[in-house]
Design a protein around this nucleic acid. Structure first.
Length: 236
DNA sequence: CACCAGGCAAGTA
DNA sequence: TACTTGCATGGT
């Protein structure tokens, strides 16, 4: 297997920007994007070899450092358990033991099973079938799964299924608040709508944009500090 | 030692 | 509706 997905090129995003209507908000969001992109470079997310692995990672990384998720996923792989059928046919306690390094393992074992149940019941256990289904319908199905909230749903849609669904996470909130672009009154769907209404619905752009927020957050925007020191967004 | 990490659901008032 | 709390490992 070569590349799961066509790589997102700078020229493609430049093209999108040129074709995109120049509302003030649209121009502003693109300017944010380029500041991050020029500083950090392309991120080429999500880490993971298959759509199913990406979906599993999205659930395991809930409020958890990615490093711990990597351990859990490598254990699943090593025990030949990283498939819908393997997860479904295994006792929940056994699954919990395998994903232990990811934390919240009892909760997450149940969540993984809930996701696999949806996959089996509505999409014949096929991530491909899921990807072929209507975006909004799939999003509603995902949000209906106990243990999948908006961020996890959008991460699966965008990174596992290749659908243009913008992902908001804690870093996005923190960075935009620190730069006085939003205040604490903004919630998940308000912010997601703001991005999606003012940017072209493009998987490549949404993918890089969210991944760049994470890169910037990890590097510059630490919790419990007044500002994001040296963040590229601080520059004019 | 305290705090944090690519959330979410359930409980409380 | 708007807080608060439980869930848990591993890194800094």
């Amino acid at each position: 297997m070569k590349q799961r997905q066509k790589k997102c090129k700078r020229t493609h995003i430049e093209e999108l920007e040129a074709r995109s209507g120049s509302s003030g908000s649209s121009e502003f969001l693109f300017s944010l994007f380029w500041k991050l992109y020029d500083f950090f470079g392309p991120q080429y997310w999500w880490p993971g070899e298959t759509p199913f692995e990406i979906a599993v990672g999205a659930i395991l990384t809930q409020n958890t450092a990615w490093k711990n998720v990597e351990k859990a996923i490598s254990i699943l792989k090593a025990s030949n358990s990283l498939s819908p059928s393997a997860i479904w046919n295994m006792p929940e306690k056994e699954l919990a033991a395998l994903i232990r390094p990811a934390g919240y393992y009892n909760i997450k074992a149940g969540r993984l099973r809930n996701f696999v149940a949806l996959l089996q019941e509505q999409f014949q256990g096929s991530m491909t079938r899921m990807a072929e289904s209507d975006d909004m319908v799939v999003r509603e199905y995902l949000l209906g799964v106990r243990g999948i909230g908006p961020e996890t749903a959008d991460s699966i849609l965008l990174y596992a299924l290749g659908k243009p669904s913008f992902v908001i996470d804690a870093y996005t909130f923190r960075i935009l608040e620190r730069h006085d672009i939003i205040d604490e009154s903004w919630d998940y769907h308000m912010l997601r709508d703001f991005f999606m209404e003012n940017l072209p619905g493009d998987v490549c752009l949404f993918n890089e944009f969210h991944a760049l927020f994470v890169a910037a957050g990890k590097t510059f925007c630490k919790p419990r500090r007044p500002a994001c020191d040296n963040c590229p967004l601080s520059e004019k």
